[in-house]
Amino acid sequence: MTDVTSEEETYKALEDQALMERLTLRDLTAFRTLYNRYSSLVYSASLRVLRDASLAEDVVQEIFLRIWRKPESYVATRGKFATWLTSVTRNRAVDAIRSRNRRYRHETASPEEQEWDVPGDERDDPALTAEMSDQRRIILTALSGLPAEQRRVIELAYFGGLTQQEISDKLDQPLGTVKTRIRLGMQKLKAALSPEVT
């Protein structure tokens, strides 16, 4: 008889790429392992964008079933699975929110509500893998080095789904100022994250 516990441990020890390869063989245990590894991250990212638990659930379901249906959509040579997954999640969540009434969203999601976790806070989160925890520490440290106004426009762009013009309108700041803040902020982030992103 199969030792289920042992099998679970075996799957948990597999790297993302190995699990994704097993998905092409319709391996449900590999799928469940990936879900358990990343569902919190996907849900949190969706929730941050959508501000609606029900819609965030829908995005989580859509993202994971998309992975199940087309595991080949992830190409390992293009980057880490977690990075790809969060990017896909963010894009889908932004698509979802753009399909809703923009005005409603703008009225309900204030910039103050969308502050980063705690820039500089390097706590481990038990829901994250060791590798993701390392990356979390790196990105939080990098964000803590940015001026608040640069963090704010990056946040509004990435999680708010706003264009630079929309951020300009929202913050009542000149468009040129917004563009400069985004560019300077991203340059600093890329420099701080250099080992991770190059």
Binding site: L41, S87, Q135, I139, L140
Partner: peptide, 13 residues
């Protein structure tokens, strides 16, 4: 890649 890492900075639920 840098942008995608931003998602790791949010509180995890």
């Amino acid at each position: 890649r840098a942008a995608a890492m931003l998602a790791l900075a949010i509180p995890v639920e």
